[in-house]
Design a protein around this nucleic acid. Structure first.
Lengths: 224, 224, 224, 224
DNA sequence: CATGAATGAGGGTTCATTCAT
DNA sequence: GATGAATGAACCCTCATTCAT
């Protein structure tokens, strides 16, 4: 199952098979994201596809197998974005801001990814844990951050008691929240966090926060 | 439906009826939080209760009615926490840190609440929107924040381009993420964000961040 | 599951429930006997019942559960027959003949039982082994035989190198075969072993065989 | 369909085609014997074969066609055994014992044959009846028995009210039972009828029985 | 208030079989 | 001859919900 997506580029499959699978995956991604794992209907997915329900089982074995493939697909996508970021010639704080904004941009434009992550968490990540591919490839997400922070600390402009994983968490939390909690937030406060009018300032805010925090004199070191 | 909980304190119900309802709600909260709306089973809830499935329908009308009552219950709980916070004699930055930590404390100790919020978002808050009680009472959550920020801005120590809702969002995002994305984060990075060993530093970090951001000279207004 | 049938006489069930279950069991017995475990259709069983398919799952949990209940039912029936046999005042050979004929009579008039046993054997008795009730109660089937044979050996009229289980096997084999292999035998040799015209002589033959064998001078002990 | 196997020896087929068919038949025999007709899976058979599912349909037309071919194969095998028995110079009782033991030997060493016969009986021999080959060739199974019994009766040492088909039935019943009911018998009485330690005495027992019965003075003729 | 019995609609899954290449 | 892709019918099972007592 974990290998399916990579096989797509192999020649073990016909053009048509690739298209069919891709078609199913696209529809399934939307359905699972919109209704949760239990709420999604295999029948409904099949109905929105060029093919039949039977093909879903032919290619993915089960509802869970399909869900897993969907998960791998969206995680593969975010990896591609991460690989496209280049921060070699920036100052540490510039780099930090760039990384923060890249995450913000990805998450706010990939609602389905965030929804699937939420769903996965409701299920205690039990499906995610089955995918060695995802686990293996996605740890590297913080490699860039580690390098930047190390440089900032070495140059004496970053506090040294906040590690890369903490920073990643803060950035992810901020970006995720925009999408994941969009609806309850809007219902209660009547503000759509993804309103284009807010985008620029929100995009800047996460950069501000992370840079202000890492370069803050009072917080860093001292009495702690 | 939305009025049911308030009836509890009325005298239209026997002691026993109140206990039965409370019992059902407690079990239902756990079940919905653990499995999502579609994933939760009415049978399972009934089985874990002292009463029978028939009682669930007697008191709550339907699965959706029960879910709504559960939502109202957990939202009522967070309101009680908010009402208990007193920041009148603190400096704006102290107050900000206090509010941030209170949110952090609540969310990290009420996993079920966060899970239910996640679930509600997957369903585009369509249930939440049905409860006037929740909507009416929970907007007030930012009243305190508004006062603090206004004071800080007036005193010239806070930037003025970040409003109370933004600050609330940032704090909520941080606190939510710890619980909501706990499992995927742990699966990929092998770090449990709720690990007691991390609690102190994580608790401080959100205060640091919000204070550093609001008091940062470079970020506020000016050149941008 | 194993306790179901005995519960029937308890008061934990309404009259109606007992009837419903009995109805289902009767139809299911016929269906499984006629089509095998895999070949039987739950839909078909439900259709031939006063109730619906849902009730089958309500009472028996699964196709397998139903099959198991069917198995217990037919095995309970044969136990009742066995308990009704009285041979206390017969001579050993008379008793032997009586027991043989009782088995012959039961098997040839309970086609479904034999078919279910055949089916069970195709599945390596994996269901039977799950029923402690059947296993526990049906070993006693040879108690009578043991007593009779012991008496015959003691009186010196039976050979002593054939034990009760062997005799049981011989009798069962003969009686089973009439029903279990009825169709292939008829197809090839054009003789219906259950033809009423043959019944008398076939009934006597198994008695003849078992008595002749046990009392045969040449076979017993001696030169072997 | 019924003619397929005979084609094998014709030259209308390549070496390879013959091997492929044999391969399929062997696997199919095991699958049908182990799971029954409905329980056997064409996919599974194909998977255990060197060839693909398509080939099964190419050679055998359908699941039923394959099953029929399997049936013909195992019945052809037992015919070969029968043809190998020579009893011309034996006394009637010796010959009888020899035939009984031959059947016992064949059945206890051809579990799949017995299982397939059981399965066929569950389906009321409806497949068997389609194969003229099997029906035509297997009636001859009792020719030898007929001759022996006739001789015994003529010589006055055999009773004359038990015909060859009855004897065949008794012998078959005994031998079949060892294999066909092996599992339920073992489950209930904890004795494996095919235990090598029992083989010798069980092998002798059927001979004893049939000879004792046919030569028994009391049973034959007389008062009946 | 409370309980076991009952239900209809639909959900996931599987099977034998066929098509296109 | 051989292969992967595709299919429709049906199969087992489950769920929220209601009824009778």
């Amino acid at each position: 199952m974990s290998e399916r997506l990579s096989e797509v580029s192999d020649s073990g499959m016909t053009e048509r098979a690739i298209r069919t699978q891709g078609d199913i995956l696209e529809v399934a991604t939307a359905e699972f994201a919109a209704n949760g794992y239990a709420g999604a209907r295999v029948d409904e997915i099949a109905a929105r596809t060029r093919t039949t329900k039977r093909m879903i089982y032919y290619y993915f074995g089960s509802k869970e197998g399909l869900y897993l493939a969907v998960l791998e697909r969206v995680y593969a996508q975010i990896r591609r974005v991460e690989r496209g970021i280049h921060i070699d010639e920036m100052s540490p704080d510039e780099a930090l801001r760039t990384l923060a904004e890249a995450t913000y941009d990805h998450h706010t434009t990939h609602e389905e990814f965030i929804q699937l992550v939420s769903i996965e968490n409701i299920h205690r990540a039990e499906h995610l844990r089955q995918s060695q591919t995802i686990l293996r490839e996605n740890v590297t997400a913080i490699t860039l951050l580690e390098q930047v922070i190390e440089r900032g600390v070495r140059e004496g402009i970053f506090r040294d008691d906040v590690d890369a994983l903490d920073v990643h968490m803060v950035i992810s939390a901020y970006a995720c929240f925009h999408v994941a909690n969009r609806h309850t937030f809007a219902a209660i406060f009547d503000r759509d966090m993804l309103d284009p009018a807010l985008q620029e300032s929100h995009r800047r805010l996460i950069g501000d926060m992370i840079v202000a925090t890492m370069t803050d004199r009072r917080s860093a070191g001292g009495e702690r």
